[in-house]
Design a protein around this nucleic acid. Structure first.
Lengths: 225, 225
DNA sequence: TCAAAAGTGTTCAGGGTACACCCATGG
DNA sequence: CCATGGGTGTACCCTGAACACTTTTGA
């Protein structure tokens, strides 16, 4: 460790995660009420300070693991937020991430323990600090990736119907999609393969179930909606 | 300032800028040889520590202003880099940016004073720390924006020929483009308007000069290559 | 007169979009 | 038997890509 850096300011560094999940077919985000001031009691993204022993990515994974019990989560950095007064409590530079979790697989008890709550995207409460910007930016990134990479499939259960998939695309992209065109593209994506099973819950006729095959995706890289 | 945050680690936070400029028609980046250890003498992006009185964006602008004398520079954040050992001298979280500067307008003396040097992109030296990743990521972002937003025009002199513009696109995107298709699209971009002048330097026949009109761009938003 | 860059339209193929009806079944 | 969601193909348009020759003029 050299002496040169001495004399420059140091800052708290935190991570904040926009965690998306599909709760009862509705796109939701995991929020929490802040446990301390500033902003105690207000809605906040889930986050935490980066420890000296952690990289930014590691810190984000830890925070997510603590809250959901999941270790293998799709996660992307959104960017750094560093306005001077963004956190009135202290100078904190925060790095935002977004994550996609499989709702069925996560540990609801942990969420409760940490005062977390899944909130429907269409009913977002007012968020603390600059979390609204983080949210908006995360959403924008999610949308652009959604059409060209099979990240949306991580939100769905292991087997799913094409109607579920289409509904997911429609909520994320915020626009209706043509059923026949959608299914045509799904058929062209070789990584979406039929399980042979039928889902008999959501319709009388029953809908074919599909699963995502990551190996096939790595091989073909065909995914275009 | 609350006491809650006490007890968490604090870090140095820096900004690092990938500064693109068009030097003699060649796409170049502004680099510097590090003036101190760790990595003294090695090639580095230009950067500096964020001060307590600055936001991240402000710090990036200051660093750029100090080196080029320019205050109104197109700049975009690339992301935060925070591996523990990325800087062996201390724990430093760095936020990368890329910037596009008008080569003719910048202050070369300041560059020299700071040991800066414009290096042709095709002759990039080995860079210090994780600067190669920052560089690669900046380049990737530049490329994706280049086709849909008129950011490339900030690299060119106030008036330019379509050949110059095409050459710029070709170097940034790294592929040849069809001349007729290119010019057709340039004509459709109403924000690229003829000055009425001719450039007689680069060809015997002389080429029509064009300028970029930001107001027209704001109005029409037509720019697609 | 020749070398060097400027300038100019058309054709074709492929992808994206729009669109409507029958099927299977549980209640 | 009917209401509900599942499942299927085609026609058109438009955008993107390929392509070659004439013009101007300084050396």
């Amino acid at each position: 460790m050299t002496d040169y850096y001495k004399g420059y300011g140091q800052f708290y560094v935190s991570v904040d995660c926009v965690v998306f999940g599909l709760n009862e077919g509705r796109l939701s985000v995991l929020l929490t009420r802040r446990a301390f001031d500033p902003g105690q009691g207000r809605w906040s993204l889930i986050g935490g300070f980066v420890r000296p022993t952690e990289s930014l990515d590691t810190a984000a994974h830890r925070v997510l693991s603590e809250l959901t019990g999941l270790d293998d989560i799709y996660m992307q950095q959104v960017g750094a937020f560093g306005e001077i007064e963004r956190d009135p409590g202290a100078r904190v530079v925060s790095v935002a991430y977004y994550a996609l979790v499989n709702f069925d697989a996560h540990d609801r008890r942990k969420v409760e323990e940490h005062n977390g709550a899944w909130v429907d995207l269409s009913e977002l409460p007012e968020l603390v600090f600059d979390h609204p910007q983080m949210m908006a930016e995360a959403m924008a990134r999610l949308r652009t990736r959604f059409l060209t990479e099979p990240i949306g499939l991580t939100l769905l259960p292991a087997s799913f119907t094409l109607s579920q998939l289409q509904a997911l695309f429609e909520t994320v992209l915020g626009r209706p999609m043509d059923k026949r065109n959608f299914r045509k593209r799904a058929m062209e994506a070789t990584c979406i393969e039929p399980t042979g099973e039928k889902d008999r819950l959501s319709s009388k006729r029953g809908a074919a179930l599909y699963r995502f095959n990551p190996e096939v995706y790595e091989r073909d890289r065909k995914f275009k909606f």
